Computed example of a mutant assay.
Amino acid sequence: MQLTGKITPDSLMSLEAYSKWRKAHKAEVMAHRQLRSVHLGEHINLQFESETTIRYQIQEMLRVEKIFEEEGIAQEIEAYAPLVPDGSNWKATMMLAYTDINERQRELARLIGVEDRLFVEVEGHDRVYAIADEDMDRENDEKTSAVHFVRFELTPEMCASVKAGAGVKLGCDHTHYPAHTQVAPETLASLAGDLR
C-alpha cells in the first residue's frame, strides 16, 4: 500500500492485488491502528485516522463489497477520504462502547453533546475542542450516536510544539463524562507525523 498524500482511484490497488497485499501486511496495519487508538475513560475510544488507516478502510470496503466499477470506487473514496488528516489537524473516529444494552441506551441519552466536549491540549497551549460530525448530524433530542467523527484543528504553533516533543492531553469535559488522559509518547510520535 503506497502512501501518496491523496487517495485517488489510480492510487488504489485492484481487488486481486489488494488480496495478495492484505495477506502479507494486515498485521502491520492492525498494529498501526492500535498505536493510534486512545482510550478516554472506560467507554470512549478515539481511533486517530491516517492515510494508512483510511486507505486500508477503503480497500477493505472494495474487497468485501466486491466493488470494481469506477462509480462505486469513487463513492468509497468520497465517503472516507475526508477522514485523512491534512497537515494542521488530527481526525478521529470516536466510539462510545457499553457491553450492557440497557446501560448503553441510558448513557447515550445522558451523553448528548459529548462529541463537542472532547478536547486536545498541547502542552503550553489552550485546549482545542473537537469539531464533530461535519458530514451529518449524528444525534437527536433523545440520544447521541455511539459513533462520531471528530476533527481537532491545531494552530501552526501547536503543530510546532508537538513536533518539538510537547506532551498532549486528550480529554472530555461533558458533565456526565469528565475524563482526561495523557497521550502515550509512541502514539504521539505517530500523530506528530500527521502535522506539517
Rank of each mutant, 00 (worst) to 15 (best):
L111M: 13
I112F: 02
I112R: 12
I112E: 01
E115K: 01
D116G: 13
D116H: 11
D116K: 09
L118K: 01
F119H: 11
F119E: 03
V120K: 00
E121P: 00
E121L: 05
V122K: 00
G124S: 08
D126E: 14
V128Q: 06
V128T: 15
Y129I: 14
Y129D: 07
A130V: 06
A130Y: 00
A130T: 08
D133S: 10
E134G: 14
E134V: 09
D135W: 09
M136C: 15
M136K: 08
N140T: 11
N140L: 07
N140E: 04
N140A: 07
E142S: 15
S145T: 05
S145L: 08
V147Q: 10
V147K: 11
V147M: 08
H148I: 08
H148G: 02
F149G: 01
V150W: 00
R151H: 10
R151W: 03
E153V: 13
E153R: 14
L154K: 00
L154A: 11
L154W: 01
P156M: 09
P156T: 06
P156N: 14
P156E: 15
E157D: 10
C159M: 09
S161M: 04
S161D: 05
S161T: 02
V162Y: 00
V162R: 00
K163M: 06
K163H: 12
K163V: 06
K163E: 10
G165Y: 07
G165C: 14
G167P: 03
G167K: 13
G167C: 12
K169G: 03
K169E: 09
K169H: 07
L170I: 09
L170Y: 04
G171A: 12
G171Y: 04
G171V: 13
D173K: 08
T175E: 05
T175M: 12
T175R: 12
H176V: 05
P178W: 12
H180E: 08
H180T: 10
H180D: 15
T181Q: 05
T181S: 05
Q182W: 10
Q182F: 04
V183G: 00
A184T: 12
A184I: 11
E186V: 11
E186G: 04
E186L: 12
E186W: 07
T187S: 10
T187Y: 05
T187E: 10
L188F: 07
L188W: 01
L188R: 02
L188S: 03
A189T: 08
A189V: 10
S190E: 07
S190Q: 09
L191C: 10
A192T: 03
G193P: 06
G193K: 06
D194N: 11
